[in-house]
Write a protein that binds this DNA or RNA. Structure first.
Lengths: 265, 265
DNA sequence: CGAGACTTTGACCGTAGTCAATTTATGTGG
DNA sequence: CCACATAAATTGACTACGGTCAAAGTCTCG
């Protein structure tokens, strides 16, 4: 597959991911004409989207991963989230309050879909709508991330994140036989999950030994996603919970760490 | 001050907080006419905004605090953020994916500003714009919260959160002589910061003994906010960082916990 | 083939969690 | 205004998850 096809395919995937375009392949096919305007970043490069501040550019990841992070003055680093192929990087993430930034984690290719679709108002509108949905998803992921760091153990955090990544890779067809590429070093995992590199290592070793997860040369295989999901309380974004059932009346088993169940009022 | 004035004042505060309405007091004064339609919730009550799903209601907190949280099936609980007087509760927060919910932490009064302003298109638009800004702020706070939980120690987390709350209370004139009411139990702090009740207690005791923070009957006093801010790397939302300076070239002292400084690419 | 980046491991430490009991508010009915 | 019931704050003793340090082993890629 040549670069052109590749990008077109990915933009198509992006589109079908972002909005519910799945059916409208005819539309999507037309994107193939617009594969130009790819921007590339090397691993570790900061992704800057605008020359002029507040231009509000947003861009679709065509290949590679990026992350959004912040670095404290003393060097501690926190990664807030990842941008995978088919997902959107908005300028807001790049330039916002509090010195956050977006950094490429691998070779990264992005397309300025707004510019690319300039002559195509219909597609462009579709895209805008897709971006809006993507923004909601991104926010949803921030909540998940808070939950991970606040209430999950190291094991659970790792598994929870891997399930999240798997799901997102799956959407764009990048999961094959339960296996997908993860261009993240242990250090990146550590900075994302609020753990130390060493402990990430130990945790993954354990998961590996238990046969729950296997890592070979940048690819991760999750043997039994369902079981893993239960084990770390992962809620697939597809799974809508039955309307807050567990909120008032304490529901279930007071087992795990950090003081099981309590009243509230 | 009677209830009517009180609500009007708060809505005014809300408005001036939410958008940059500060100057337009004439506009704001007109809100006094619309103090009705207050909804009340008792401590611990779940705040539901809609009878019909997807109605997209949003509501301004007039007095009291609420929080947004999620409860895991095993009883672990994570609080994602707080809603203070003058801030907005959107339905999205209430009803969204993944069984999140909003719960009142004290006696809570909210006003449906949309409905209240029904006959006032100008104000209503102002309000919508205010809500949009509020949403951005809320998202920004999610990032801060992730940072707290991922990279700050217990001490730092507590201080960081207190500074955040102080700032928000200050905006609506509820800070007097560095002191403000905080209707949160240690348990709530624990669930928000990903710590145990016991450790929250110990941490606060320590801060108290060091004279950094004092607690008396629900009111918190922060002796020296500036110093505290430095100590926990708190960035006031007012403080815009100079464009990501620290991102690539490692900036400063490799001191604190969790593996000081590293390269990245 | 060598340099630098990543991963892995062992030894040891410390922050934060757990359990359980006690003290101190808070609040309610009498 | 007091007694009691309940929720919240504290404290101590002990545990353990996860961090730190340092060294060795692997991988990659020029």
């Amino acid at each position: 597959m040549n670069v052109q096809d590749f990008c077109a395919t990915r933009l198509a995937r992006a589109a079908s991911t972002l909005s519910a375009l799945a059916g409208q392949t005819s539309e999507v096919d037309r994107l193939r004409a617009f594969w130009r305007r790819v921007e590339r970043f090397g691993p570790g490069a900061q992704v800057r989207l605008s020359s002029t501040p507040r231009s509000g550019r947003r861009v679709v990841v065509v290949s590679g991963w990026a992350c959004e992070l912040r670095i404290l003055p003393d060097g501690r680093r926190q990664i807030f989230g990842f941008m995978l192929p088919g997902e959107v990087i908005e300028e807001r993430c790049t330039t916002s309050i509090g010195s956050r930034g977006v950094i490429a984690l691998s070779r990264l290719e992005v397309i300025d879909a707004d510019a690319t679709l300039a002559g195509e108002p219909a597609l462009r509108q579709l895209f805008s709508q897709a971006v809006a949905e993507a923004a909601l998803e991104r926010e949803e992921r921030l909540y998940d991330h808070i939950l991970r760091m606040g209430r999950l153990s190291a094991r659970e955090r790792v598994v929870h994140l891997l399930l999240d990544l798997r799901e997102r890779m799956d959407r764009v067809g990048l999961v094959k036989e339960n296996s997908f590429r993860v261009p993240l070093t242990h250090e990146v995992f550590a900075d994302a999950l609020g753990l130390s590199v060493v402990h990430i290592n130990r945790t993954m070793k354990q998961l590996r030994q238990e046969g729950l997860v296997s890592f070979k040369s940048g690819a991760v295989t999750l043997a039994d996603p369902e079981r893993l999901a239960i084990m770390c309380h992962y809620q697939s974004p597809g799974t809508f919970a039955d309307e807050l059932a567990p909120l008032r009346g304490p529901p279930a088993d007071p087992s795990r760490t950090c003081e099981g169940r309590r009243a509230f009022a």
